[in-house]
Design a protein around this nucleic acid. Sequence first.
DNA 1: ACCGACGGGACCGCCCGTTGTT
DNA 2: AACAACGGGCGGTCCCGTCGGT
Lengths: 208, 208, 208, 208
Amino acid sequence: MTQATAESSPTTKGERTRRRIVERTAPVFNVRGYAGASMRDLVAATGLEKGGLYNHFGSKEKLALAAFDHSVSLLGDRLAAARASTDDAGDQLVAVVRAFAQGASKPALPGGCPIMNTAIEADGTNPELYAHARDAMTRWHRLIGAIIKEGIAARQLDASTDSYEVATVITSALEGALMLARLYDDVAQMDRAVVHLVTYVGTLRCSR
Amino acid sequence: MTQATAESSPTTKGERTRRRIVERTAPVFNVRGYAGASMRDLVAATGLEKGGLYNHFGSKEKLALAAFDHSVSLLGDRLAAARASTDDAGDQLVAVVRAFAQGASKPALPGGCPIMNTAIEADGTNPELYAHARDAMTRWHRLIGAIIKEGIAARQLDASTDSYEVATVITSALEGALMLARLYDDVAQMDRAVVHLVTYVGTLRCSR
Amino acid sequence: MTQATAESSPTTKGERTRRRIVERTAPVFNVRGYAGASMRDLVAATGLEKGGLYNHFGSKEKLALAAFDHSVSLLGDRLAAARASTDDAGDQLVAVVRAFAQGASKPALPGGCPIMNTAIEADGTNPELYAHARDAMTRWHRLIGAIIKEGIAARQLDASTDSYEVATVITSALEGALMLARLYDDVAQMDRAVVHLVTYVGTLRCSR
Amino acid sequence: MTQATAESSPTTKGERTRRRIVERTAPVFNVRGYAGASMRDLVAATGLEKGGLYNHFGSKEKLALAAFDHSVSLLGDRLAAARASTDDAGDQLVAVVRAFAQGASKPALPGGCPIMNTAIEADGTNPELYAHARDAMTRWHRLIGAIIKEGIAARQLDASTDSYEVATVITSALEGALMLARLYDDVAQMDRAVVHLVTYVGTLRCSR
DNA sequence: ACCGACGGGACCGCCCGTTGTT
DNA sequence: AACAACGGGCGGTCCCGTCGGT
């Protein structure tokens, strides 16, 4: 969620090309899937030829992993920024929920949530990619856990709040709702989930 | 959700073979995805040769559609049976939630929920399959809507209950939670979602 | 040219079915070629199923031969009728030329001349069919030879007329012109050839 | 007929391979037909693997078109050279006739005339190839037309000579005769047609 | 006699990855 | 370091012919 925020510094020529490849292929992978994206698609998206891609990444698999991590970092940045927008833990949870929900109407990346897409596609077929998806989801759960821990310490959230439960409820509802919103091409599916989650977060606040 | 419950009667030889093909290929499609399942896989699963499959279904696409509908009917039967187990609308909702949640520990079909799998994979790449997924989800939403409508009429549920909201909340949370439970290979992810939804359903009951 | 004119008599049920199959498949073979016509096409053209076709003809090859002979007999009937329309040998040649030329505007069979089609397609790939085409062409050459022989005897044609040359000139020009007329979808190509051949036949007449 | 005479210059490796593919596959296509030639045949003829062919020509269809154009250019070169052998228009026509007729005994390409073969096979089944055949025939007709036009201007041919008629008569007789010569494996069929056409050309000369 | 399920094989297209070339 | 040629191989489709069933 936070690891790849600072991709910068030395910027050799090779490094810049590598960055460009990742940025251009990430949406292709996210839309077509990591098996459905053909080398031809990736070549078309990057402008480079196949040899160029293989020079930077040794295999389609490694490129897919890099592209996935990049996609996830986009999402992570969004969520981290949302959290930073306020000091109250409850408000932070709401902000994170809303930040993710924004993906239904203004996607940071075409094709939906890369974590869910990968969790579904790679399940049982691509252990390495699946592990990356798991790690990405874990970082998200930890973000929520951190908010709750600090919120309890600051007496903003009820001391009995179970951070595991909250993480599960929020992430499952949001991922499911994003799928529904895309399936019906209807943001209302996401809006209802957000309303529900905001109410739910309200029940966790201390000063109730 | 309910359409395909009564597949029976004439049972010619071809009809029986066709049924067998669908039953045997449905899990393959659900695990490997509708693109990831190769004709070779399907041949291995059915025992027939490629020519045989081709005679019953003119293309892999048509077979995939039939297999998807079959998979969904398995799920639909489970949910319908859960609803039939009680008369109280709130209890019916809880039973439906629990029936779906059972898919995390005792799957009716390997590979997770076929609707979600298809909604994710077919999004943007296979309109026809995507439409089937949409229809299947709509039948599920209608099942919930019917329970709520009758529940309101029977004064079991609060008259202000918004069936669209309930359908979105229940299906999104369950689909998301199933994904999490599979991602972490941990039923607890599903259990937490169920606890949450049972509480949520409680808030809808009339006699509150 | 004359062999298959009298396909009639006993007319058992099987015989009638067989006749129907040949009549319905002949155009398909002539248009698509004897390799390009698939069993599916033939099934569609006849209304029977594959088993039915294989009951009457042991193989696609044998059916193709029967269909070819039928197509050729249609052409042969046309030419024989043209010859019968007059007693003068020169007029008979002209009539035969015009009868064949009619195939450019009012084909007895879709797809052009079956002899030429088969001579081109089967050349080097299907010796049996090729032999049938050769036989059919030979019958046509013999028809011309017979006309010339009788014409010389009746002092209608110059005694020095070389029937081999005439047969070659007439059949080659007509087959080539039919190909051109079809290639350009323009009957004028055939008309010019006919004009030329009529003039040519004029040079053979005795009373010049 | 004349377009492809100067294929030369840059000659990259790919260009040379491409040229080799065309030269090696052209006879295969001409003998087996454009549908009857399988990728396996083409692979065997070229020495490359399927992937290699696919990289140079995106499909069998495109390769067939290139091979056809190459085959036609061989024929066109032969005819153009024949024309260049003399200045008199009548002699040019005779030379062109003899050059084509040579194809019966000393074929530039196995399998007969590619234009006729394609005109027959592609008729009604392959519009693009059919169009190429039409274009090739048109170039041949134009060659004859040009000879006649210049012959009239030079008072070598009768001013009333109809170039359309001459083109039709010559090409139809030659194509038909080539088919006959192959069908009977007998050059005499072609020789008779040539004799006839030489006489015919004689009737067009001015100083008669 | 006719149908239709079925086998196995061949078709063309396209895949990913490597290897030589510039 | 980028390209383009190339190799095998697997993808789904469709083929023809047979054989069991009605």
